[in-house]
């Protein structure tokens, strides 16, 4: 009986998914379209695109997109499908997934947005999906973004290596689609179900290190939701001259804890461990070069600057809890200055 029930369920599932094969973009586009924006920023020369895609995730104008050189500017411009232009700035970036959280200046009103669900995508391989993005910047003005139709091909772990920062590596379960989404400007776009539900965000362009093929994938909503929760935690960033002066310099860190952070090339340089001093607390605790520091003392750290800020606030501490990412895994490390007797 149990098996028969399962069987029926399978058939029902098939029916439902075939019924969706009739494209219903017309029905869902009034709902989905306004939530997605074209993102314009730095670039435009030397083969670097100055455009990508993003989407609203809150009524107050939070926008999720990918972290890329396009955002290397004070302000970016968001263009809605209606042609409305909004100014936005980067709130924080997430080195783990290569995401960026933006805040758009809304001129009154609320932004139509996707709710990020913290569950892994309920969509199943074979389900119809639509990919919506600003690929090739085809839709420049007051016009809808490009829509491609396909099916969810699978859910699989993918080692994400950012072309922007090749040292960022992480293996994550992502959504694979049979639509070519690895096109210029598509990153930050959405994969939605045939009912218009957000399934994931088209990730930065990445190719397989084994086959050289370009991956057509999306970061599922659960990863996005985690990242946004992380990013929304108020970062402890000293802004005044005073606290900047109090920030430990690299040499101080090395003397006290025994590690060197990566040089702070830009305000968004991820907090990588550059080197570990032999025999130091850091080495004893197991910290390694190339570890990416994502939490310091329970505070998420998206950059060297943020890591330094937290370390400053904890400069009297004898113990320091770090969460680092190493080869796709999160490792908890506690540095201890009090040597055990």
């Amino acid at each position: 009986m149990w098996c028969r029930a399962t069987m029926l369920l399978v058939v029902c599932g098939l029916l439902a998914s075939f019924a969706q094969a009739q494209t219903n973009w017309r029905e869902i586009s009034p709902d989905v379209g306004p939530r997605i924006v074209k993102v314009y920023g730095a670039g435009g020369g030397g083969g670097l695109e100055n455009y990508q895609t993003g989407f609203f995730i809150s009524a107050e104008g939070r926008v999720l997109t990918v972290n890329s050189p396009v955002l290397d500017t004070d302000e970016v411009t968001l263009v809605t499908e209606e042609g409305n232009r909004l100014t936005a700035r980067v709130v924080r970036t997430d080195p783990l997934l290569g995401l960026a959280l933006l805040q758009a200046e809304l001129s009154g009103g609320i932004a139509p947005h996707f709710e990020l669900k913290s569950e892994f995508s309920p969509a199943q391989p074979g389900d119809d999906v639509f990919a919506v993005s600003n690929l090739f910047n085809v839709a420049t003005g007051p016009e809808a973004l490009s829509v491609q139709r396909g099916v969810l091909a699978g859910k699989a772990p993918l080692e994400l290596v950012s072309p922007f920062d090749p040292t960022v590596k992480r293996e994550q379960a992502v959504l694979l689609v049979d639509v070519v989404t690895s096109n210029p400007g598509a990153a930050g776009g959405v994969i939605v179900s045939s009912r218009g539900e957000l399934l994931g965000m088209i990730g930065p362009e990445r190719r397989s290190r084994v086959t050289g093929a370009w991956h057509n994938y999306a970061l599922p909503t659960n990863l996005l939701a985690d990242a946004v929760t992380r990013l929304e935690q108020p970062p402890v960033i000293p802004t005044s001259e005073d606290s900047a002066a109090q920030r430990p310099d690299a040499a101080q860190l090395a003397r006290r804890w025994g590690f060197w952070l990566a040089p702070e090339i830009s305000s968004r340089t991820p907090a990588y461990i550059d080197d570990v001093v032999p025999g130091s607390a850091a080495e004893l605790a197991g910290l390694q070069p190339d570890d990416l520091v994502v939490f310091v003392a329970e505070t998420s750290t998206a950059s060297v600057a943020e890591a330094l800020a937290v370390l400053t606030s904890q400069r009297e501490a004898e113990q320091m809890a770090l969460l680092v990412e190493r080869n796709g895994e999160l490792v908890r490390i506690t540095l201890n200055l009090t040597k055990p007797e």
Binding site: T23, W25, V138, A139, T140, E143, A144, L145, S146, V147, Q148, R149
Partner: peptide, 11 residues
């Protein structure tokens, strides 16, 4: 076989 991805496009 596919869908129309955009209309009124300028190239």
């Amino acid at each position: 076989h596919g869908i129309l991805s955009g209309i009124h496009r300028y190239q």
